[in-house]
Structures are given as C-alpha cells and as structure tokens.
Design a protein around this nucleic acid. Structure first.
Lengths: 161, 161
DNA sequence: TGTAAATAGGACACAAACGGTCGTATACTC
DNA sequence: GAGTATACGACCGTTTGTGTCCTATTTACA
C-alpha cells in the first residue's frame, strides 16, 4: 500500500531514459520497452498519457518516437505521477469531487491533508535530472569503492525545500 | 493512488478517539464504530491488528475494550499505517522479500528509495496527539473566527524534522 | 504510391487488493 | 450460566491494476 503503481514506475524509468538520451532525435516506445524489458504496448499507453499531459512530444510514423517536451531539470516526479496515476490523497475519502459520507465524523481529514501536502512537496522537489544524477552516483559507488559523505542527493533535495 | 486505505484511516480515527478518551477505563470496538459510523466488525479486525502490533492493549469480556498501550505522544502515524497496511514502498517492485525481476534494469529504484525514506520521516513525525491537537484547533477555527498565523501545526511538524 | 514503422486509443481479460460480512471460538464479568 | 466482548479464519463482491488485442491514423522512405 501507499506504493507507486508499476505504470508510474515505468513512466519514471522511461523519462529518465529519455533524459539520458537527450541527444537522440527521438526514441520509440519499443526502444525503451526493450531496454527495460517492459511490455511494449503497456509502455506505449503510458507514454501516450505523458504526451497528453504535456511532458513529452510525440512524433508518429517511421523513425518516430518521443522526446522530452522540457529539460529534464524542469520535470518533477510529482508531475509524472500525477499524469499517470491521477491526483493522490493520503486520505481514502475525499476523492476530490465530493467529500466522503463520513465528512462530519471524520476528524482526521484536515490533519492528514497537511501530510499530503508535505509528501507532495517532497515529490515536487525531485526532478528527472536528479534521477539521472543519483543513479550515476550509485553506479559509480558500486563499481568504484568509497561510500562516504554527500552521497544522498535526493535526501538533501527533499530536506532543502 | 498513493492513498491511504480506509482501514488505515479507520485505525487512525480510532486511535485518535482513544487518545481523546484516555480517562475512560476502556472503549469497545462497538463504541468507536458507532461514534464514527464505521462497520463494527471491520473496525474490530483493525483494532485486533493494532493490538497484535503492540499499539493497543485489549481486554475481553464484559466492559472490555481497548486502551492505548502508550501515550498518544509516543505513537506515530507511521506505526499505525505500518501495522495496518504493512510496509510501504514507493516503488512497486521490491516488495521487501526479494527484488523485482527488473532488478538489473530498473535504474530508478535506488533514487526512489530515498524518496520513500523522506515520506516515512514525515509520517514518523506525526503523532496521534498531534491529530488531536490539530483537530481541536481546526474546530475552534471553524466555530470561532480568525484564521491567522501558526495554524498549520502538522506542516510545521513535518518541516521541523 | 505502396509498405513498413510508429503513435493513438478503445475494448477486454485476468489477477490482485480492498472493503465488508459471517460464523465460531474464547475470555471475562456479573 | 448468561451476556458481552475480543480473536480469528473463511468467504464474497467490487474495485483497481496489469497487460493484451485490435483497429485507425500518421509518417518516412524505397
């Protein structure tokens, strides 16, 4: 529970992959799916949603594919999750349109709404470029050796808000 | 998505209710269920899990019920959610026991693990007593009038980590 | 101009999770 | 011993998540 869906996972992976290949004219859903062993048709749909949401630009036809519509530094994890999984609330009631039937009795809604905001802020502070950077550091750390200090950029990012 | 289950909601509400009635010798699942119009049997199960997890103490038989096993200030929202919904991960893979089959290709796992930690920290900073306090303030604000300054205790809590 | 490769998107099938109920056993009080 | 409460396993219907299939459309290139 309180977990990301696979779709959101795939979406983040795809964006990260596109960010790492920004020099390419465009990459197809198939290219990305093969790189990560993701079901191609499923990924295609995800990329379509991201396109509809304005995070990607698509190009149909031969040699077509997708490119980031903005710099990787201007796309946040929050936007990706929002695009794929829709708005999220930490309370199970309050689906956005109308409040739950417990409205009058549910006394934790307001407190938890603030928690939701805090979590949103964390996700808004994570950029696709951070994923690239963080992963690069992790790989180097694994291949190389010393794992000391300042190796948790994302934590720092989350704390810096 | 990324939302709390109703069970976790109910659990938090119940703990808050118990915290508000700490002077009572014990409250039954039925008492609490009626107060919030929650299905009694469902709430009973939730309270049983919380008991098993050590957050509540139960007492069977006539005039039985539940009491907090600790002070409301020593129980966090994180523990409640963990007890009811199990461990949560922001990545859909990595269910705890073994990593997903994408292990080698999934390059965002490590970065997102840090995000999970940040969110956990937020939830760990929320105590049941905060829910009580925060709700009290909200009610007063609604009944009374002025809504200025320092009215977002939970946000402050989340930020103070 | 035709073919192949790509996006776009609706419909559907399967599986897992969630929400809730039922029945029964057990513990405790009076 | 009766009544009330917790403890817990089994079950069921609904929803959500994951993935596939099929068709239409766009585009590049031979």
């Amino acid at each position: 529970m309180l977990r990301l869906t696979k779709k959101a996972d795939y979406g983040l992976m795809a964006l990260k992959f596109l960010a790492e290949h920004e020099q390419s004219p465009s990459l197809s859903a198939k290219d990305i799916a093969e790189a990560y062993h993701i079901p191609p048709q499923l990924l295609a749909k995800i990329l379509q949603r991201l396109t509809k949401f304005g995070l990607l630009k698509s190009h149909a036809g031969m040699n077509g594919g997708y490119v980031l519509s903005r710099s990787a530094r201007e796309i946040t994890a929050f936007e990706v999750i929002l695009a794929i999984d829709g708005p999220f609330f930490i309370t199970s009631c309050d689906t956005g349109t109308r409040s739950c039937d417990l409205a009058n009795h549910c006394t934790i809604k307001e407190p938890l709404r603030r928690v939701t905001e805090s979590i949103s802020d964390v996700l808004k502070a994570i950029r696709i470029s951070d994923l690239v950077e963080q992963d690069r550091v992790a790989v180097e750390g694994r291949a190389g050796a010393s794992l000391k200090g300042a190796q948790h950029p994302l934590v720092n990012i989350a704390a810096r808000n």
